[in-house]
């Protein structure tokens, strides 16, 4: 009986300590020092919430750069992956369809090598990034849809290159382009002209 009472008290103390005080401490610290990040790296356009830099969006309008395929259509509650095994017929079909779609919509010939991430659905279903190469392959189409001149197109390509983030500290991860940030810049660029 004495043991049960000790158990209860320890559980209560641990709940207060690790379940309430600890998250409260981290929240206060994060809200003071990294307020924007702690709240989801949110992006407002004309005062309205337009999304989060970290969460991919489903761009289907061809005046925009396209993200990776998503098994949950960029639904966030909950996000998810395809979980298709490497020998699954559906996966093989999906890859072929993604490839054909990417080549067709971007007006590329069938010999073009499409980067892997554009063929496969992401893990979170919310992957905000694509590779630099995938972004560059889309420039022609985006410039065409937005009726850019050839100088504007060159500026667009250098903009894409500038937005690419190299491996962090030159060490960790891959070179990526955030599609949401890229499309935000694209809109700004377009409205300046």
């Amino acid at each position: 009986m004495k043991n049960i009472i000790i158990s209860l008290r320890v559980l209560l103390a641990m709940t207060i300590l690790t379940g309430l005080l600890y998250p409260a401490l981290i929240t206060s610290f994060a809200q003071i020092f990294f307020s924007r990040k702690a709240n989801g790296s949110l992006v407002y356009v004309n005062g309205k919430l337009s999304g989060s830099e970290l969460i991919g969006q489903n761009f289907s309008d061809s005046t925009y750069f396209f993200p990776r395929p998503s098994a949950c259509d960029f639904n966030t509650v909950p996000g998810g992956a395809s979980n298709l095994g490497p020998g699954n017929k559906k996966l093989i079909g999906d890859i072929q369809a993604s490839k054909a779609r990417f080549l067709k919509v971007n007006g590329l010939d069938s010999l073009t090598v499409v980067p892997n991430e554009m063929l496969f659905a992401s893990a979170s279903g919310l992957d905000p990034d694509i590779s630099l190469k995938s972004a560059l392959l889309q420039c022609n189409r985006v410039a065409g849809m937005r009726k850019f001149s050839s100088t504007q197109k060159k500026e667009l390509i250098s903009m894409v290159n500038n937005l690419a983030s190299p491996p962090q500290f030159s060490l960790f991860g891959e070179t990526t382009v955030n599609v949401f940030k890229l499309n935000l810049e694209l809109n700004k660029f377009d409205s300046h002209e």
């Binding site: 989801g40 790296s41 919430l49 337009s50 999304g51 969460i55 761009f59 925009y64 960029f74 966030t76």
Partner: peptide
């Protein structure tokens, strides 16, 4: 950039006009 807050989920209107809930 890992989030840490107690806010409710927020509704965003994405760049090409779709709704997205930000957890």
């Amino acid at each position: 950039g890992v989030i840490q807050n107690f806010s409710p989920y927020q509704k965003a209107i994405t760049l090409d006009g779709k709704q997205q809930l930000i957890p």
